[in-house]
Simulated assay, not measured.
Amino acid sequence: MVKLAVAVHKRLGDFQLAVDFAVEGGLIVLFGPSGCGKSSTLAAIAGLLQPDRGRIALGEEVFCDSERNIHIAPQRRRLGFVFQNYALFPHLNVERNICFAIDRESRDFQRERLRELLTLLRLENLAHRYPAELSGGQQQRVALARALAPHPRLLLLDEPFSALDSELREELRDELKRLQIELALPVVMVTHTRSEALQLADTVVRLDLGQVMAVGSAAAVLSPTPRTGNNARFSW
């Protein structure tokens, strides 16, 4: 499995992000309370946030290395990113939203990839609808299809289920796990919901106050522990 290694230091106003971890494949969850640095870490992996210093690598490919003055542009990292609000283009229908990510490819490639993704994400009957005509779950599947269109090496998800009701969240969690296994695609997902992390994660990176507190299996990292000390922010 491909290893993702992240060592990032970044000052954001009064907040100091200082994370250092290495994980391998599967579905990786960045877990912790709001404001702990999860989304900033994800943005740094994507190249949307440039660290003050540090190094980020996926396998043998180095995305960022401050000592060697390397900072690969986001579009050259071959990563898929699904934003918390999905960021679909309201003036484009489903098929054009998906193909936007591969608009430089040949028409034949776009048609074939679109067909594959519409089938994979069960969107065949929605291809000509616009985002405003879709439910939240349908919008999320379109955003996933767009992120998957260029055959990314890693898929990044920022709180992908936060805007959905509980029944739909459960359905789409199962869908995400199915896709991750079927495509053998490593995924890094941000969440502050313990049940979500327990259900989905192969590996959990638990963050708090801008630092990594623990890395391991969901069962090991998220086991209920008593609240101790003035700085403890987790109790179940």
Rank of each mutant, 00 (worst) to 15 (best):
T228G: 14
G47A: 08
E171W: 01
Q211D: 06
A46N: 06
R146W: 13
A219W: 01
A22Y: 07
G229S: 08
G13W: 08
R169V: 11
L168N: 05
N230G: 03
A101V: 01
A163S: 14
G25D: 12
E105H: 03
E105Y: 07
S217Q: 11
P226W: 03
L58R: 04
L156E: 14
E61A: 09
A132M: 13
V2P: 11
H192P: 00
E196Q: 07
L58I: 00
C99A: 10
I72H: 07
E133C: 02
D103C: 10
S39R: 03
R206I: 01
N231Q: 05
A149P: 07
V212C: 03
L118H: 10
S162Q: 06
V212K: 01
L120E: 13
S39I: 06
G80P: 15
A147W: 09
F81Y: 15
A218T: 13
A163Q: 04
V82H: 02
S166I: 14
P33L: 03
V187N: 07
H71M: 12
V215E: 05
L164W: 10
Q50V: 11
D65H: 01
A145N: 08
V2G: 02
L126H: 14
L148A: 06
S235P: 02
G37N: 03
P226K: 11
P131R: 14
D165M: 05
G210Y: 10
A220T: 11
V204P: 07
V62A: 02
L121A: 11
E159T: 14
G26M: 02
P224K: 15
A201E: 12
A57N: 01
A149N: 05
